[in-house]
Design a protein around this nucleic acid. Sequence first.
RNA 1: GCCGACGUGGUGGAAUUGGUAGACACGCUAGGCUUAGAACCUAGUGCCGCAAGGCGUGUGGGUUCGAGUCCCUCCGUCGGUACCA
Length: 838
Amino acid sequence: MQDTFDHKQTESRWQEAWRKQHVFEVDRTTDKPKYYILEMFPYPSGTLHMGHVRNYTIGDVIARYKAARGFNVMHPMGWDAFGLPAENAAIKHKTHPSRWTYSNIAYMKRQFERMGWLFDWRREVATCAADYYKWEQLFFIQMLEKGLAYRKLSTVNWCPSCNTVLANEQVEEGRCWRCENETTTKELTQWFFKVTQYAEELLDGIDKLTGWPERVTSQQKHWIGRSDGAEILFEVADGPSKGKKIPVFTTRPDTVCGVTYLSLAPEHPLTLELATGAGRAAEVSAFAEKVRKVDKIKRTDENYEKEGVSLGVHVINPVTGAKVPLFAANFVLMDYGTGAVMAVPAHDVRDHAFAKKYGLPIKKVIEAVDLPADAPPVYVQDMAYTDHGKLLDSGEFTGLTSEEAKKKIPIWLEKKGAGRPTVNYKLRDWGLSRQRYWGAPIPIIHCDKDGAVPVPKDQLPVVLPEDVEFTGEGASPLARSEKFLNVKCPKCGGPAKRETDTMDTFVESSWYYLRYMSIPTPDKPFAAEDVKYWGPVDQYIGGVEHATMHLLYFRFFHRVLQDLGWVPAGVPREPATRLLNQGIVYKDGAKMSKSKGNVVDPDGLIERYGADTTRLFVLFAAPPEKVLEWSDAGVEGSYRFVGRVWRMVHANLSLIQDVKPWSAPHASIANPDAKKLRTKAHQTIQKVTADLDHDFRFNTAISAIMELVNEIYGFKVELNDEPSRQILRESIDTVVRLLSPFAPHLCEELWKNLGNASLLSLEPWRDHDAQAVELDVITVVVQVNGKHRANITLSKAVSKDDMAAIAARDPKVTLFLDGKELVRTVIVPGKLVNFVVK
RNA sequence: GCCGACGUGGUGGAAUUGGUAGACACGCUAGGCUUAGAACCUAGUGCCGCAAGGCGUGUGGGUUCGAGUCCCUCCGUCGGUACCA
């Protein structure tokens, strides 16, 4: 037996043992409750980074713990294998994205094993495999049939560096989420998923996601962005388009009587039409052109100068009948609301600035109410009053509160046929077309006669052609593959062309958790009975950067698949019950990244310290949801702890190897030190169990085990004191059992060296002995005027009065009581006495 | 601006319902072991003070017998989001 823990050979030996015994290969069973734990699958970029190490270590600990607690634990893993880096690598290294991807997968899978993470690899998926993506091609066609997928010409976000379209969610502050270059916009015909049809349901569902962190649910609420208000129709009063109605959306219908003009988005279809009718086409189109040229970052800067141009026509306010002028304005966005805004300069900051600039009237219709006497005057010159209040100068609505008017005015308008109450969302439909090769082909054929025709279902999958070149220039490689491109129309048989766009890779990650539930079969994506058994995901773990992308898409997709009949009725509407967002890994105060050169390579750590040390460090250094600040010294500390546990077992081996763990009643222990040790051991079981059950507080669980180890180091036992040796044995067994989810290789080795033949990873968790944690004495805190003055140890049975009396006699306490008048005595039974004196 | 999270020793971080602030670890100091070093073992380590004691959880206030914890104010950090009508 070695005298130190040799991680290099020990770890691989246990990994081999787990593989042979199929630990974590699970099937449906009724004799245990199921537990589905899922970590977001990695993009196979080449090697693991520390974020992966943290994510999957957390998942592995939970999986091992839940299994030990008697759950039927499903813990699958796969590869989010489509994406741009593979294509770039293909161009750079003159290889094929497929070859590059699969060789990365092979390497990373070895790294997974070296970390000691256990998965049911029979369920592994690689999303770039045709037998995976063929199902989403089918889902796409079914969504098309249901009207949930559609094509439209639209202004889309374009990343010139990635040469592809981006969804709104993938643009961060005007930059591409992937390459961080500035994005522009483009007019393109693109495929969309109708997420907006589920907007209300996705919003409502958030309140039921009680197991999700608030930072995610609040971000999703914000992103969906529901606004309650009204649509109001303003009729064109003059010119050739007289009588046309322009709908506006407003959240403040109570201010409608204060409208003094209307603003249209420059790209609004009516803008040019109306201007042309009024003979102002040249000026207005020049303005529209100027706005269009300004890049999006500048245009959306809140300090960007508000500008507009008159269209030369007027509209009629349907409530007051007033004729007001119409403008095109640069701050009105075509893609929110109706692209037209009623302007109330007295009560909106932007309208106010615009009105000042162009000398337009400002009409006050809201008056502040219930202001405290010392409040500053509300109508400060040059400011809009944007709060609620009481209506002024608003005809029959005068005197109502804003709240009342917001309800009444839209109903009144609806009766007159000039508007209605309505709801608006910030959420946009999900643009899923990508002008890339390495993605799932969109199963559509374009025919001059029949238009966009879905590929017949029996001809799926549409497989990516292999014989393509990757030059990085021009259109997508798919558009240059003649064999792929030229086909016959499935309807008329005439010559037709395949769709050459591929799907956004977020489509693959929107349903992989369902695919895992069934061991892959060629005839269906997953089996309904498996989804009924395993669904929903009990614990999902991943980075917070997906709060408004993946985590919204997969909630959407789950509902769609249920509505299409793939996910059986009765399975909850939400795909994941609990979500844990692990924090980012930092080093030197910044997120680890190649460009900053502050990355730590997991391979080097495993080589030098071993997987267990690495696992312990990432779990111990911070709570899982917080930023983890990398510390080389901290890793050394974890490494020392591993050695300390090893020595604790082996230094005591001769004392404990021939005794059984203590099993008699706790009260019968004669040696007080041994009794104390046993109490500590069982308190530790209780503490670690609670930490793992509640919020996965791995850091405090590990520190509790460290305390027990320190206690064992301080425990001295004689060879002839057999009961104490039994208690020592029990305590050491406890350390090994409790530590095993965190440092599984070390603990398997120690378990074996302690003389056990079983695999520790298959052993049940242990419960604490309630009698052992129950102390017969209590420590009472004594305070004087709330300040801690003494601790006294008393019998558990002591009465309230005795507690106070004994506390008052303590010399440290009398010092502060003498010569003072006792006003009051606060007694918390079994805990605390506080003397209040004057 | 708005939404969310957070602010505790030299450092990472502990502190169930308001009840011993600083567990555990890093670092540092001293001692032991060693030819020496590393490793290991033991002890100490919030600040001021010889001590008694005093002061201490971003700031200022409040509630309470008692506040890191609850309420209000302000300051700061991080994440998200934004001409959203």
